[in-house]
Computed example of a mutant assay.
Amino acid sequence: MIKYPLLTKGATIGVTAPSSGVPIELHDILKLAIKRMENKGHTVLCGDTVWTQNKAKSAPAKQRAEEFNKMMEDENVSILIPPWGGELLIEMLEYVNYETMKEKWILGYSDTSALLLAITLKTGLATANGTNLVDLRGEYSDPTTAKWQAVLSTHVGEKVIQTSSEKYQKEWQHTNPSSCIFHLTEQTYWRTASTKSVIVEGRLLGGCIDIIRHLIGTPYGDVRTFSKERLNQGPILWYFENCELSTTDLRRTLVQMKLAGWFENCSGVMFGRSNANQTVENYTIEDVYKELSNELQIPVIYDIDCGHLPPQITFVNGAYAEVIIEDGKGTVTQYFN
């Protein structure tokens, strides 16, 4: 059984940095994001880790975990949104109090996805892979990004529908500020590795594949037990985003996941857009997708709205989803049951 938190109007947002904090020269962008949330009626509670960054992390692992645990156990905090991802979140996973955390949303992506997936697998608590806090500092959000609030406000027993974006951002332009943060210039087109149209459904699990692959073989990546105890061996629909892996490294990772049993009961796999998908010795990313589809005999969907080429659909780990792809457009319906 999956446990779904509920985001309510005016909810208190806890901001902690389980991976990277914000260096002093960028404090202004975090303060602006906080102000935007407060203008929308939220109270924002910031931890100490948010304002510091040294040696590729906000603070030592135990300190990060202690602050995270405190916010997860604080009944006044309804949702946790880290400022962004980073590099070394995995260091603090062993210090998280999984048994005592309250039911509340955690929203983020990139390095944060290791924490999100670990919590869902170990506790059955739904977690949300989507925007981070600093990307909510704009005067407004594009329709895809803005949907995070509607998704996290969905009641148990209800469903929420999201559609593919119209355009996406090809590259970051930090020296050219935009009123919605992103520069959405490229036409979005969701693709499939086999047939032109696809309908697939299953329980969503996923995140940044560079990061969550390191959970394989640990107590925080026990997909088999989660599938047996929480899903009754029901279908799993994976979503991944590749930040930095070459096509050959991605292939190695997918084979490792298969050998570790992560693709047992898998109904489909989705991949976000990525600038990392560079060809290696004539081995293309399309080859990777087609091989996976053929080996597992499942649909593979790619170039979806997920990852470091925004905007992002909010995918809820643990939610039951139906995904429809037709003519390059995608519809994602998530059921909170």
Rank of each mutant, 00 (worst) to 15 (best):
M1Q: 11
I2A: 13
K3N: 04
L7F: 05
T8I: 10
A11Y: 09
S19M: 09
V22M: 12
D28L: 06
N39D: 15
N39L: 13
H42V: 03
H42L: 06
G47V: 04
D48C: 03
Q53R: 11
K55W: 04
K55I: 07
A56L: 15
K57W: 04
K57V: 06
A65F: 05
K70H: 13
M71S: 10
M72K: 02
D74M: 03
S78F: 07
S78W: 12
S78T: 10
W84F: 15
G85T: 13
E87Q: 14
E91V: 08
L93R: 12
N97V: 02
W105T: 04
W105M: 04
Y109N: 14
L115K: 05
I119Q: 12
L121F: 02
T127V: 10
T127E: 05
T127G: 04
G130F: 00
L133I: 04
L136R: 11
E139L: 08
E139W: 08
P143W: 02
T145S: 14
A146Y: 05
V156E: 15
S165R: 00
Y168W: 15
Q169V: 07
P177V: 00
W190H: 10
T192F: 03
T195I: 07
V198P: 07
V200S: 05
C208M: 13
C208F: 11
D210K: 01
G217R: 13
G221H: 11
D222T: 08
K228F: 00
K228S: 07
R230T: 09
G234T: 13
G234I: 02
L237H: 08
F240T: 05
T248P: 06
L250H: 11
K258C: 13
V269S: 08
M270S: 04
G272N: 05
R273Y: 14
A276I: 02
N277K: 02
T279W: 10
V280H: 12
D287H: 10
E291C: 08
Q297N: 15
P299A: 11
Q312M: 13
F315S: 02
V316C: 06
V323W: 04
I324L: 05
T333V: 15
